[in-house]
């Protein structure tokens, strides 16, 4: 199956990657070439095959309900979480005004 320029533009928008017309010119044929290649997977009869869910068979471990048990996954470190923010004011992250 091949995708159109409009479809590629729509995917770019869904992925929040701004694309100029020139970018699309380059990407559309590349994209179709890769898709055509991965579509050989359709040849394989996978009926009755379970999709992989865990690479190595393991059970999901659960954590105890304890606040700040490990400093690396704890709250209470506002300065750290804001330290790299392009805009941080009054303890908040700042973003362009959102209209809901």
């Amino acid at each position: 199956m091949s995708v159109t320029r409009e479809e590629v533009a729509k995917i770019a928008s869904l992925a929040r990657i701004r694309m100029a017309e020139g970018d699309l010119d380059k990407l559309v044929p590349e994209f179709n070439k890769i898709l055509e290649w991965v579509e050989q997977l359709g040849e394989v009869d996978t009926s009755g095959v379970e999709p992989m869910t865990a690479v190595i068979p393991q059970k999901l471990r659960l954590r105890d309900d304890v606040v700040d048990a490990d400093p690396l996954t704890a709250g209470g470190r506002r300065d750290d979480v804001l330290a790299n923010a392009p805009v941080a004011e009054h303890g908040f992250y700042g973003v362009p005004k959102v209209i809901e």
């Binding site: 990657i17 701004r18 362009p96 005004k97």
Partner: peptide
């Protein structure tokens, strides 16, 4: 939003900023 590059074109909204 929280780290790294932010590219905010003139007059851009949140989603434009992301893109």
């Amino acid at each position: 939003v929280r780290y790294g590059l932010r590219d905010l074109p003139e007059g851009a909204g949140l989603q434009d900023m992301y893109a």
